[in-house]
Amino acid sequence: MLLSRTLLKRHSVLPGFDLALGFTLLYLSFIVLIPLAAAFLKTFTMTWPAFWAAVTSPRVLASYRLTFGASFAAALLNAFFGLIVAWVLVRYEFFGKRVVDALVDLPFALPTAVAGIALTALYAGNGWIGRWLALVGIKVSYTPLGVFVALTFIGLPFVVRTLQPVLEDVQKELEEAAATLGATRWQTFSRVLFPILTPALLTGFALAFARALGEYGSVIFIAGNMPMISEITPLLIITKLEQYDYTGATAIAVVMLVSAFLMLLAINGLQAWTRKRQGR
């Protein structure tokens, strides 16, 4: 009864508020909040210089550069091609469109380990795709480029899925008006449509980037995992754990958690902007 008296803004005839919210808060605390707090509390046992040294050692810095750099590049690639894919799926008709549309979600459904070994086999020097790239001297598997390929795979649906509904909502009249006023098709796209799509495009980009930052399963198979060169930050956390360096692992984890929370804030802001642009 305590919850309903203190929290409810107005009385409701519906039952079960205390039970439902009570269970929700309890479950949330035990599964998510308290365990996450453990990570932060663990770092408080470190002195500030020790913490700083743990999160800024050269090997850790190299892993940040790779993780953030490859995530950013992969999200950028996904933003560009995601826009084209979303456009094609919403605007054009072609054979097999429904299957293609359904398959866009594959990276959400396919376990990351499966994606990891499949991409590695494909992009290795003797793989279906890697063979052709090898001819022009490009090596993908077991290099930082492999990290980029894996992160592109897992981030692929985000831009497409955030753009699709917005694109479907665009009113034809706007484009007709632009055409009547003498705009070319490209001008209509760049000056009328693109500004409407921008918030959703940025949201999709941010979602893909945030997802890529924490990714582990698909990357470790294809990356080669060489310290300083192709070692991502999540892998470094595991390496430290295996060496029983719990505080070192936790310190890096806290840095990654804080960046993830910042991304979450940014995404919430972008989503609010998208809704405002759409006038709801």
Partner: peptide, 15 residues
């Protein structure tokens, strides 16, 4: 959704 899976494992190890 925004916590890296590796960190999820880590926090349970810490507890």
């Amino acid at each position: 959704f925004s916590v890296s899976p590796v960190i999820v494992g880590l926090i349970y190890v810490l507890i």
